[in-house]
């Protein structure tokens, strides 16, 4: 069986290698991707169009912001789907699993976590808010934020973390993230542009069209951060405890 499954793998791998001989040189100036008007527009006009120094963020959150909105929706769906599958499936509610041990939270671990969780969270905010200028943005910041809650759950146990960030609160925050992202897009449509045409927000913000795009990008990154951080933690809480939301790893 293993051998049979190797055949399609080898076939696809061979195809990919076969195609690679036809590729443009690595980093060649005359490759279609560098020659196309699209990438040269990104390189020469990002600053003019959006005032954002970080080109990647501008492509991600503005030029192709619609993709990013649905990537956020995908993260949201992952959380909803896991919740939908696992809720109520934990019939062995009180029964302990073999990997669960009754141990007091370790003194050294809990005190270290006490110290570093605030630092992680502030760093998460920094990564989120600084996405325009340096690498970072909503996804990365959101993951760091979610990780801080997972750390609490690991150092004490799941209940302690859930007291601070319950699953229903997770879902509210995650939905709010989508509402923020979609809402900014919707608002720009109501103000007379296309969906997600941030420039139209100049009518409600006291800034130029370009700066409106700049600020709206921060707004949508915050929306992404909301969804990602809440779903990260909700996924961990559900998966580690098989939907029972107690004990866990």
């Amino acid at each position: 069986m293993k051998l049979i499954s190797m055949i399609p793998v080898a076939a696809v791998g061979g195809l990919l290698l076969f195609a690679a001989k036809d590729f443009p040189e690595w980093g060649a100036v005359d490759s279609p991707a560098s020659q196309s008007p699209v990438s040269s527009h990104f390189i020469s006009h990002t600053g003019v169009d959006t005032e954002v120094p970080n080109m990647v963020t501008a492509v991600l959150a503005d030029y192709r912001g619609f993709d990013t909105m649905f990537e956020t929706v995908v993260v949201f769906i992952a959380g909803v789907a896991v919740l939908a599958i696992l809720r109520g499936s934990g019939r062995r509610g009180s029964q302990k699993r073999e990997f669960e041990v009754d141990a007091e939270p370790d003194l050294i671990v809990t005190n270290t976590v006490r110290l570093i969780v605030p630092v992680i969270q502030i760093f998460a905010f920094y990564v989120l808010a600084h996405g325009h200028v340096s690498p970072g943005g909503g996804f990365q910041g959101g993951v760091a934020m979610g990780a801080s809650f997972i750390l609490v759950a690991l150092a004490w146990d799941l209940e302690v973390a859930l007291e601070r960030f319950s699953i229903s609160r997770c879902m509210v925050v995650a939905s709010l993230g989508i509402v923020i992202y979609g809402g900014i897009g919707f608002l720009s449509m109501i103000l007379g542009g296309e969906f997600l045409d941030y420039a139209e927000l100049e009518k409600v913000l006291p800034v130029s069209r370009e700066m409106a795009r700049y600020h709206a990008m921060l707004g949508v990154e915050i929306g992404v951060g909301f969804t990602v951080s809440a779903i990260m933690f909700a996924l961990y809480a559900n998966l580690s405890s098989e939907g029972r939301l107690k004990g866990g790893l």
Binding site: P37, V38, F66, D67, G193, Y198
Partner: peptide
């Protein structure tokens, strides 16, 4: 044709926006 994000075809090259 509906250009999301307002990256209209008359001002920007095709493919800049979605």
């Amino acid at each position: 044709s509906y250009l999301l994000g307002g990256w209209t075809l008359d001002q920007y090259p095709r493919g800049v926006g979605i």
